[in-house]
């Protein structure tokens, strides 16, 4: 690890690294910008891998252990590539009371994917959200960023089936 104040080179010619670097520059390469930087990495690459951890650690002069600690502490950061589709099932109280626990179980069983995991064919990632704050529409599932509300059991299962065909 470099501690002499020199900034490390970008890990590769991939242009997305510049976005990450820009995020760090905005915070003056100060350690306090760590979480913002990890957000930038995740936004650019979809997940945070070892190369990114090392690069961020050296650029911000934060020990790798702390970068890893922060990355694993917060639910938002993913350390594995996500599938082609992402299904977010809200497990907030309102959605739970209205039966989203069954939707979660259904997706896990039907598609053979665990919460936070991705199917082996990299088609579908399943995320259980804490609460997306759209409780008025409970129960809520988010299919590739599109919020789908008020569908229970059969209806939501059919919707997910249709969505995966596209």
């Amino acid at each position: 690890m470099i501690l002499d104040g020199r900034k490390p080179p970008l890990p590769s010619a991939d242009k997305r690294w510049r976005l990450v670097d820009a995020a760090m520059r905005r915070n003056g390469y100060r350690p306090q910008g760590l979480i913002e930087t990890l957000h930038a990495v995740q936004e650019a690459f979809g997940y945070v891998d070892d190369a990114a951890l090392r690069f961020v650690s050296q650029s911000l002069q934060v020990p790798p252990s702390q970068v890893l600690g922060v990355t694993t502490f917060y639910h938002q950061f993913k350390m594995k590539p996500q599938g082609r589709h992402t299904c977010v099932i809200c497990t907030g109280t309102a959605c739970y009371i209205k039966g989203n626990d069954r939707a979660l179980e259904h997706v896990q069983k039907t598609y053979g994917v665990s919460v936070g995991g991705t199917t082996p064919d990299k088609e579908l990632s399943l995320v259980a959200a804490r609460c997306v704050g759209a409780c008025g529409l409970a129960p809520v599932v988010i299919l590739d960023g599109v919020v789908v509300g008020k569908l229970v059991d059969e209806a939501v299962q059919a919707r997910i089936r249709e969505w995966l065909k596209t």
Partner: peptide, 21 residues
């Protein structure tokens, strides 16, 4: 921005998070 941790609603945890920890 938060990053998905309920405990960060607690004020001292929230401040640790702003500090990048």
């Amino acid at each position: 921005l938060g990053a998905g941790a309920f405990v960060c609603g607690e004020e001292t945890a929230l401040m640790a998070s702003i500090e990048g920890r």
